[in-house]
Design a protein around this nucleic acid. Sequence first.
DNA 1: CACCCTCAGTTGGGAAGTCGAACCGACACG
DNA 2: CGTGTCGGTTCGACTTCCCAACTGAGGGTG
Lengths: 144, 144
Amino acid sequence: MSELPGRFCSIAAALQVVGDRWSLLAVREVSFGHHRFGEILEGTGAPRDRLSARLKALVEAEVLERRQYSDAPPRSDYHLTPAGKDLLPVLRSLMAWGDRWAVETPPVTLLHHDHELEPTTVCGTCGERVHGADVHRRSNTPPA
Amino acid sequence: MSELPGRFCSIAAALQVVGDRWSLLAVREVSFGHHRFGEILEGTGAPRDRLSARLKALVEAEVLERRQYSDAPPRSDYHLTPAGKDLLPVLRSLMAWGDRWAVETPPVTLLHHDHELEPTTVCGTCGERVHGADVHRRSNTPPA
DNA sequence: CACCCTCAGTTGGGAAGTCGAACCGACACG
DNA sequence: CGTGTCGGTTCGACTTCCCAACTGAGGGTG
């Protein structure tokens, strides 16, 4: 919300929204088809109150949508908004990194059609695989 | 470190390493060519002690490498290890998400050669663009 | 050499966030 | 009714975080 002292940058802005301990795991659970509070609670292992607060914030940030699916006992579940679905590439790249550097054996493998998915970043414009050396930064009109 | 109550998953494992408030911003700064403590401090806006602790942890996790470049006044700087360089796709996807959903105007644009980089995920095996509907999960031998 | 500056942290104390467990309200089951 | 489930909220202890001040090693100047 307020101006941070650091560099103004979309990475920092993204982390303001999903940069805490449980948000990405909650989005992961929802993307796994676990839409109810209890499922997300169990899947993430977060404390109930933290999860409650996070889900509220993610709904506020329009990453998740809360849908009331029962009036009688008031029950709601959580679904990905377009912004939430757009987080899946982030989750996939994070998972790929974790597979390579943070676990011994990947506990879950993503399958693309019938073969193992190896998430790879390409430039959408030219289709070439992205190598660090080919990428440069350009600052747009700096604020202030 | 210890067994978390939640699902065993590489995303969670990755977040154990870089899932706190400042780690990814520190890696971003180093990837921007800012290798010294003071530069990272200014670029991230983190408190000095937090940054000190985070850099220590990232060196411990072998995401960053600390190099002494002067003995006389003991000075060191920080560089990306292979694991650190491997985080760049994560940062790029996070930045793309932030551009789309968390800021009005992208403050920084990445250029790929001479055109704007639009980070896109493809399957490294078949080269096809990844759509959520094409991806499925497979659990590997669960631990315990 | 005295004096002040930089750099890279460390220390201390208060504020803020996090945790786990207990509690709550609405309902369903028997 | 009594018990159980679901989706939270509340509570108190604990941990982490933030900020400002300090340290300590050296450098630059006169």
